[in-house]
Design a binder for these strands. Structure first.
Lengths: 336, 336
DNA sequence: TTGTATGCGTTATCAT
DNA sequence: ATGATAACGCATACAA
């Protein structure tokens, strides 16, 4: 391994001079600096991030927290897109990313301890159980954090516009004549709460009354539970004309159930999803859904986190809402 | 931040003693060791991975390389499952994982330089363009590596059993009476080569002759290109009775195309996929496909890499083939 | 403009 | 059984 000491020897200067030259310090003669840089390249010098981190107290490494426990692990498209864009933007800004989890080998540590152990300059928190006290410990620590789809007091967060997204979907089906809207929602999270509230509020403002039995619980990304909820809706004396699914993947469960009953989409039943994952636009008929701006959420998260890391003094926490987009698809029939 | 120095002061011993006690060195009095450990916990001491890494030359950090360029980035289920299991197994064994990419911020470095810069103890390489010279540089360096679905000379690799998987599928449809098999394959990679070879070989050994126009190129995970290939197959004077798709997702493109022609699956056309992603079993009819053991591939990759890191002297490179499993589904019709 | 000295937190060697 | 000391590679305050 070639170090600045090797370069110093090779150039007949001190290590300090080499360090300065390599970092573009202003107090080094341009000619020496160039000579040193050339020699460094020749020798195949690579900076040692570990040594630098130890010295300057900054690792240029940010942690990402994707708890799998909530079933929202990285294998779901929404989250893997977020991860992908967090990675891309972080690397663009000179930061690497490391996964933060509970328990590393024999040592048992919580998220905060893990991040601290690795000297993460900050942590992006997505897909976690935000009610877990160990998340709160991390968020309330001195480590800069950005949370996705959940806001902690005086902390930065990136939010998908669940309220407007749901409103857009409700208005869309309303305009096509639907008045009996059923909503299958995900498990109780702040996202679900927002979507339910927005669904009800928009319905109310449009003069639609929603019977309690039209609101049914299911589990995010679990087609089976949405299939069961669909069956329950079909057994009602008065069926809805349009069913809202928790997400695009869950819709597939509903789709099977509808087919089993000989109900065709959208002729006999209209449906809408949520997420706008690529799959939803491959299916025929194309799913009417709301595409969340996952890629932008990831890059904004990385950008804001790094801004906070690099300018802690002028930093003010903020919540950014990333708008999505209604995908019209063709699973909503115009009726009556 | 509390360091071993703080503990040393608090306990009235030297830093060396604290270090030894914390690491369970045998030459420390049990009572002192316990006293030190208790005090460390009290003070909320956390080891500093950076400092340790600098000193011992091991980072307990492994790099993962998921090049997005090949279109096999982390947002595809096969790869995200691999990533997930690499992460899980690595953490179980006490290693963190960091993404390795090209170009970190302003510095431009290749994969080897990046891994070196971060002092990665080893690198798991998946979803990369293995013909890229910078991959070769990394693999041929002193850094331990494990590659997935590609083997370098004298290096460890984890392989999905593409040969047996394809053979199983061909035999399955053969047994159901099919003799006209068309194969839409992915872009030219070693995986594709193996699948094509196995397809042809198995057909030959079963006495099936495959006309050249039954073999069509497409792109992995790209439903559109598989849709086009499907159309081409349908325009042939003599249509196949069963179409093999490059992967489950690509099949969706074929599905749309078949529907557009009023062809019903499996009544009028049988189909098989590859991968066995959860989605394939949600669809109705359930897709006949071959499930790759992605989770096991990831954990084996991590396990072997770490074994290699920790026992470099007794290490022998090896290739492990992870078996998958045929998922019967119901997209293959028994005919004639 | 360059060099000297010091320390970041840890572990390892060698005395004691 | 414990401690003094050096070293890992780097960056910086300060001296020259």
């Amino acid at each position: 391994m070639v170090t600045i000491t090797d370069i110093a020897k090779a150039c007949g200067v001190s290590r300090a001079t080499v360090s300065k030259a390599l970092n573009g310090a202003p107090d080094i003669a341009p000619t020496t600096a160039e000579r040193i840089r050339d020699r460094a390249k020749e020798l195949g010098y690579l900076p040692n991030a570990t040594a630098r981190a130890l010295k300057v107290g900054r690792s240029y490494n940010i942690g990402v927290l994707f708890s799998d426990a909530t079933g929202g692990g990285i294998s779901h498209e929404y989250f893997s897109q977020i991860l992908e864009s967090v990675k891309r933007e972080s690397e663009r800004l000179g930061y690497d990313i490391t996964f933060i989890g509970k328990d590393l080998g024999a040592m048992q540590m919580d998220y905060y301890e893990h991040a601290k152990y690795r000297n993460c300059d900050g942590v992006v928190i997505a897909s976690a159980d935000f009610t877990d006290p160990v998340i709160a410990r991390l968020v309330n620590s001195e480590i800069p954090t950005v949370t996705l789809d959940y806001t902690f007091d005086s902390r930065t967060s990136i939010l998908s516009d669940n309220v407007r997204g749901m409103e857009a979907l409700v208005r869309f089906v309303y305009e096509r004549g639907h008045r009996k809207l059923a909503f299958i929602h995900g498990e109780s999270t702040s996202v679900t709460q927002k979507r339910i509230a927005s669904f009800k509020k928009t319905c109310a403002s449009l003069g639609i009354s929603v019977p309690a039995e039209y609101i049914r619980p299911a589990v995010f990304h679990d087609p089976r539970s949405s299939g069961l909820a669909t069956r329950a809706l079909l057994e009602l004396p008065e069926r809805p004309t349009c069913i809202f699914y928790p997400d695009d993947l869950s819709f597939l469960g509903g789709m099977s159930e509808l087919e089993r009953h000989g109900i065709s989409i959208p002729k006999d039943m209209s449906v809408v999803g949520y997420d706008g994952i690529p799959l939803s636009q491959i299916l025929r008929p194309r799913l009417t859904t709301y595409r969340q701006g996952a890629a932008r959420m990831g890059s904004e998260a990385a950008r804001l986190l790094i801004e906070q890391i690099e300018h802690p003094d002028t930093w003010l926490p903020q919540s950014i809402t990333v708008e999505g987009e209604l995908l019209e698809g063709s699973t909503v029939q115009t009726i009556g």
